[in-house]
Amino acid sequence: MDITRLIIVAVGGQGNLLASKVLGEAALAKGIPVRMSEIHGMAQRGGVVESSMVFGDAQSTIISDGDADVLVGFEPCETLRALKKCSEKTVVITNTSPIPPFTVTTGQGVYPDIDMVKSLIRKKTRELVVVDAAAMAGKAGNPMAVNMVLLGALIKTGVLPLSAEDVRDAIRTKTRKGVVETNLSAFDLGYEAA
């Protein structure tokens, strides 16, 4: 079966690992081969969390530069930083709400202009889907559900071999009981927006 490679980048605490777990469980339930790798050594300390997921007949769990079919960025500056993983064929989905790193506060760095981020990614890749995930998560009744909004947008692009219902089922069984309903609404809002 065809190989699809997905990279998700986020800032520690944004729920990237749960999002990838939901996708993995959805693929397992559907019988699609899936492998994943994550780097989260110091994530709790505000660093970057990256997961790579490979669907289909490949063995490796990591994705080389230029090899991602789809990139999901939970934070716009991190989406741009991960652009090296993309090629001109890559579909990119990004959240637009920035979480400036502390180096911006201390004046050691400058946060990039969001419009520039968007136009640059749009120019270099096949397609850019822009989602204000923070606002939609709030609308869904759970500000922590940024990850679910972005999963919705990701599934809508049709790049992954998973349907919305496949992922909804995994959200129902693999996320905490108390937040399943808001997670599902967040997923649907992201799906409709993309």
Partner: peptide, 19 residues
């Protein structure tokens, strides 16, 4: 054909920090 990333500006680093 690696992407030409020369237009990407210097991005602020995000090192891990004490909480």
């Amino acid at each position: 054909h690696p992407l030409d990333l020369s237009e990407v500006p210097n991005l602020p680093v995000r090192p891990p920090a004490l909480c």
